[in-house]
Write a protein that binds this DNA or RNA. Structure first.
Lengths: 207, 207
DNA sequence: ATATTTACATACAAGCTTGATTGTATATAA
DNA sequence: TTATATACAATCAAGCTTGTATGTAAATAT
């Protein structure tokens, strides 16, 4: 039997993506072969080539699985809905903690982050991804800044630093935390205290 | 003419390392060939294999060029000499700014950082490097913590966060900054304001 | 009912990379 | 002065990847 129904085909597409994620994680993107991926997905390279043009396309498919929903969720957790009533600083804290908790519980997301951060070389055609990352950062910073502006308006801030500066500092802190969280695979250095680190970071700003 | 004097041989070794740095930067470590490196260094693969066992050894040679001196310099700039009289917070600030300035001026160092951060896949034999990175971080954090302890003793701190928590926050901030600084190749997002970001970060702690 | 896609599997050609081997001219040690 | 180790260059065999081309059976359209 060869030809499958459309639903079956979509399943094999997902199986290929899942397989690619496992293979990328284990061998790194560059040293992962379409044959590796196909074998892991219990198909042949023919199937892979049918669904994807090449390895790069699979990579982007994996990336989109996690990073497309990411931005939207940020809006929620950062309380950017206008009628939000909670302490903005607490909202920032919760938003960051929420991401860490997601990473802890969501294996798929954790693996994708790990691939993007330490199992991938941003060179050639992958260099464009860097620009996407930079742009994501910009929009994230803006959203954090808005929250800090609300905090400032409500006279909740301990320092007289601008919301912009606070947002940049928070973003860089969290970027660093994510990197360390991922690299600290056994959890002994950063993972176990990530939530505390976030709370300290925010407490430093509370009046 | 083939056989060179010892000094000549050492020069070709350095030429190979320099070439490897350029090739790694341009093509990523995984897709860099010993042939690429040899050609760039104006030698044959025979010379490369004479000086290095394989690509991994070249990688480590490049890494040691920058990261071995790094730890020592940190001791200086962080003012860990006991007779240091300057404001500890200013010393931390200067230390971080000094690293950024080094990255700006020292092409070699900047390229090596870029290779290690976004042109290399930490998998297989490279995974051990992750542990080295984690350990480096630990010692760095300790040194920053000592400086914050001095600041606390001198009653210079605005918050009542522990020196440990402040050091971790600073380290994560700076790690994030380094990553963004490297990724922001055209300098429009982070590089141009890196020094200001550091000063804001430290000012947040000043009484 | 037949024609035509679809969703793969199989086969093939080409290039690339690696490691090993061999060759060799020259420093350097004895 | 001679022997040997050094610092490479050149060659070779083997395997691995990739892209493409072709085959094919079943689903779907007509």
């Amino acid at each position: 039997m060869v030809r499958k129904t459309k639903e079956d085909a979509e399943l094999t597409r997902l199986r290929i993506i899942d397989a690619a994620r496992a293979v990328f994680l284990a061998r790194g993107v560059s040293k992962s072969t379409l044959e590796h991926i196909a074998t892991k997905a219990n198909v042949t390279r023919g199937a892979v080539y049918w669904h994807f043009k090449n390895k790069t396309e699979i990579f982007h498919a994996i990336r989109e699985q996690v990073f497309l929903p990411l931005i939207d969720r940020m809006d929620d957790t950062l309380g950017l809905a206008i009628d939000s009533t909670e302490n903005p600083l607490t909202q920032i804290e919760n938003s960051l903690c929420h991401t860490i908790n997601e990473l802890s519980e969501n294996t798929e997301m954790r693996e994708i982050y790990e691939i993007m951060m330490i199992k991938c070389e941003y060179v050639g055609e992958f260099a464009t991804v860097l620009h996407q990352i930079l742009n994501n950062c910009s929009s994230l910073i803006e959203k954090i800044e808005i929250a800090y502006q609300r905090a400032q308006t409500q006279n909740l801030l301990a320092s007289n630093l601008s919301p912009r500066a606070l947002a940049l500092d928070t973003h860089l802190f969290f970027g660093g935390l994510l990197h360390m969280w991922i690299k600290d695979a056994d959890g002994s250095k950063f993972r176990y205290q990530a939530i505390d680190l976030i709370k300290s970071h925010i407490n430093l700003r509370r009046k």
